[in-house]
């Protein structure tokens, strides 16, 4: 069962990463694609908690780091999504389940992940990361992710509940 669970989670991440770099790269807003992988991580973290969120975030981040056409230092998205997945998972018990909480969590997560990624670039001296560019990209990324939340999060929650029925279920919006 746990193998199946891991396989389903892996497939979900794989699908998300491929959609993000293959499909949504044709639907960019000013070059910004929606972080589908991040949405899957946040969705899973909201259902399964911080540890699961961190683990799935690491896997999704590493896939983003290694999948073409990525040319940045490997591990940067992994770092960003581990932190994001963990923090998003903490929201699970602290709040009532509501669409508003989910949307706010996604917005905060998108902000965190993009910022951590940009900061790691600044620390490594990546010439592509400039403050102006980060300021341009951040709000678009957050809004685009929020816009896709109603499509992605319920689907992720449904899959998570299907593969691992939890004792304390809640109705997802």
């Amino acid at each position: 069962m746990s193998v199946l669970r891991a396989a389903v989670a892996g497939l979900l991440v794989l699908l998300a990463v491929n959609l993000q770099i293959g499909f949504f790269s044709h639907l960019t807003i000013d070059g910004v694609v929606p972080d589908v992988a991040l949405l899957v991580v946040v969705g899973a973290a909201l259902v399964r908690g911080p540890e699961y969120g961190a683990a799935l975030g690491f896997a999704a981040g590493l896939a983003l780091d290694l999948a073409p056409p990525a040319d940045h230092t490997a591990g940067r998205w992994a770092l960003a999504l581990v932190i994001t997945g963990y923090v998003a998972g903490l929201v699970r018990n602290d709040a009532d389940r509501s669409a508003v909480v989910s949307v706010l969590t996604v917005a905060a997560s998108a902000f965190t992940a993009t910022s951590v990624f940009a900061l790691s670039g600044l620390a490594l001296g990546d010439p592509g990361v400039t403050t102006e560019l980060v300021i341009d990209v951040l709000p678009i990324a957050v809004l685009y992710d929020v816009a896709l939340t109603p499509l992605v999060l319920p689907a992720v929650a449904w899959v998570m509940h299907r593969v691992a029925p939890m004792s304390h279920r809640w109705a997802y919006p």
Partner: peptide, 15 residues
């Protein structure tokens, strides 16, 4: 061109 690196990655690469 089948893939474009996202602006969030701050590098301009395509597949």
């Amino acid at each position: 061109v089948v893939g474009v690196g996202p602006a969030q990655s701050f590098s301009r690469t395509v597949t």
